[in-house]
Simulated scan of single mutants.
Amino acid sequence: MSIVLKRIYDEPPQLGGHRILIDRVWPRGISKENAKLDEWMKEIKPSPHLRKWFNHEQEKFEEFKKAYKEELNQDDEKQKKLQELKEMSANERLVLLYGAKDERHNHAVVLKEVLEDL
Rank of each mutant, 00 (worst) to 15 (best):
K36M: 10
W40S: 04
D38W: 00
P46N: 12
I44V: 08
W53S: 13
P46M: 13
P12L: 08
P48R: 14
H18G: 00
F54N: 11
L37Y: 02
L37I: 11
G17R: 01
R19T: 09
L37P: 02
W26G: 00
R51Y: 14
R51C: 08
L37Q: 04
N34I: 03
P12F: 02
A35T: 03
V25Q: 14
P27W: 09
E43Y: 09
E43F: 07
P27E: 11
P27C: 12
V25S: 13
K36D: 01
G17D: 04
H18R: 09
N34H: 10
P46Y: 03
P46F: 08
N34P: 00
P46T: 05
P13N: 10
R51W: 03
I30K: 13
E43T: 11
S31A: 10
Y9V: 08
Q14L: 11
I22M: 05
P48V: 15
W40Q: 03
G16L: 13
S31Y: 04
W40I: 05
V25M: 15
D38E: 11
R28C: 01
I22Q: 00
R51M: 13
I20K: 00
I44F: 06
K36C: 08
P13H: 08
Q14N: 15
Y9L: 07
I30Y: 01
K45R: 11
R28A: 06
I20V: 14
R19Q: 06
L15E: 12
E11M: 09
P48Q: 15
S31W: 02
G29S: 04
I22K: 02
E33C: 04
M41L: 15
W26Q: 02
L50A: 10
G16W: 04
W40M: 06
L37K: 01
K52A: 14
P48L: 14
K36H: 10
W53F: 12
Y9F: 14
P12A: 11
H49P: 00
H49V: 13
E43I: 07
V25C: 11
R19F: 08
L37E: 02
P48H: 15
L50C: 09
S47W: 10
R24I: 00
S31L: 03
R51F: 12
S31N: 06
W26E: 03
R28M: 11
Q14S: 13
W40E: 01
R24N: 04
V25A: 14
S31D: 05
R19P: 00
K32F: 00
G16D: 10
I30N: 03
E43H: 10
V25Y: 13
L15K: 12
I44M: 06
A35H: 05
K45S: 15
L37T: 08
Y9A: 09
R28T: 07
